[in-house]
């Protein structure tokens, strides 16, 4: 408990009054301590996590030094006190990272990006949620691929499920003439003509709509990255644009234990 309290005090000191520089100096926002301590790039987050990059003045020769270094990668607003469950869980997480010498690389298949996008469909803004993962095409050649898409517009949900939308049991005798009508004037209700309970794969619908020019993505509203490299944990980083703070940029905002 004493060690935990000490760790929290040091963490609080480090985050609120960094390295003895308590005031903003002219030009500080361009080159000063707040600029330098911002974890601006995801690469930078990985380098700090892997200890291949250290902040100025950090001493990671001791275990507590290493713990503090990793705790500084958390969104400090998640911690209320040294007895805070979140802080204790973060410490356990940090200790696991150190015990297992976890190392993050772009090539890992166990990290992904979640992009909340704003799309355009039939002239209106629609939310589309994409999950992207890194795919290695050949050694050292990677790109992001869209592994999953979700969104109300991709469910093709009809205005109403009703028996009124049906193909009569004798329609076969007139060579299913109704198919022309249900794929034109009834097209919004098309899911009524699928097997009971059947739902389309939203990712396939996404690719189809984009291919046909019916859906475009305008911009990414929020972005986060989820990592599964720490055994027994999944953690998420989000971007915090804080001025005059050494706790800004890409920071661990969520971490939870998972079954192995």
């Amino acid at each position: 408990m004493k060690n935990i309290r000490w760790g929290f005090i040091l963490l609080a000191l480090t985050l609120s009054c960094p390295l003895g520089q308590a005031q903003v100096i002219p030009g500080g926002e361009l080159d000063g301590i707040f600029y330098k301590s911002r974890v601006a790039l995801v690469d930078e987050f990985m380098d700090l996590f892997n200890f291949t990059e250290l902040r100025a003045g950090e001493d990671t020769s001791s275990l507590d030094g290493k713990r503090l270094h990793l705790l500084n990668l958390f969104n400090k607003e998640r911690f209320q006190s040294a007895k805070d469950t979140a802080f204790l869980q973060a410490l356990s997480f940090v200790d696991r990272v150190l015990e297992d010498s976890v190392h993050l690389t772009i090539a890992d298949s166990s990290w992904l990006s979640r992009a909340h996008c704003v799309g355009k469909y039939e002239g209106r803004d629609v939310p589309v949620y994409l999950t992207l993962k890194i795919q290695e095409w050949e050694p050292e050649l990677y790109s992001w691929i869209i592994s999953k898409a979700e969104g109300e517009v991709l469910t093709l949900a009809p205005p109403v499920y009703s028996r009124r939308f049906s193909i009569d049991p004798v329609e076969h005798d007139i060579r299913f003439m109704a198919l022309s009508r249900i794929t034109s004037s009834d097209r919004k209700a098309i899911l009524n003509y699928a097997p009971a309970g059947w739902r389309p794969d939203e990712t396939s619908v996404f690719f189809s709509l984009v291919h046909e020019g019916a859906l475009t993505l305008e911009y990414v509203e929020t972005l986060e990255f989820e990592f599964g490299q720490v055994p027994g944990y999944v953690f998420t980083i989000r971007y915090f644009d804080r001025e005059e703070s050494t706790n800004s940029g890409w920071l661990i905002d969520e971490w939870k234990e998972v079954d192995l």
Partner: peptide
């Protein structure tokens, strides 16, 4: 002080 990410091969 400009921060630069790692170089990634694309082609």
């Amino acid at each position: 002080n400009i921060k630069v990410s790692s170089l990634r091969k694309i082609d």
